[in-house]
Amino acid sequence: MRTASLIEALVADRAARGRPLARGLVGALVAGAAVSLALFLVEFGVRADIAEAFVTWRFEVKLAMVFLALALAYSLCVSLSRPVMSGRAAWRLAPLAALAVAAVAIELAMLPAAAWVARLVGSNAVVCLTTIPILAIAPLAAVLWFLRRGAPASPALAGAAAGLLAATAGASLYAFHCFDDSPLFVVTWYVLAALPVIALGAILGRRLLRW
């Protein structure tokens, strides 16, 4: 087929169809998160003392961290799904790191040193490590499926970003279940829970996101 003929076929297929990547990713994320929300409500549920929790700074900071992580992971995911390699993509997560460091510093300043370990270990570490990945499965599947429409400079990195996005979606739900609100707990166990999801995303991304 001559190139001029191919061009006619491409023109007939219309440039206008399809929606921008960034908007489509929101739809995929919402669809995946809806499945996890149903699972969350049936299997886990909102903590009993949610009303009291809302007026404590630790709970509010926890929510701020998970939702900031969700927003930044989304922006990272969009950026890494494009063919133009952005050299400083990881810097997008800098505000989250700054918030985490500040929250941990305040917690350490407010608590006596003797209480640090108890707050760090908390009482839900194992629950956290299993629940966040479970709640991340549906968002990861939906996001990876959608990102096959992308054209990532690095499929593995884009997959890792999809894993991070799915993990933050899972963590955003889990944060309403878990009553360990200390920044020491959140920064340690939420991050550890996200790692296997990120790794799985990278492995799947390498295979699924090639173009």
Binding site: M1, I7, L10, R19, A22, R82, P83
Partner: peptide, 17 residues
């Protein structure tokens, strides 16, 4: 050239306008 044109067409949503 043809494979690239095709990729450009199918991946046009990844261009940030």
């Amino acid at each position: 050239v043809q494979e690239t044109l095709l990729a450009m067409h199918l991946k046009r949503d990844t261009w940030d306008e």
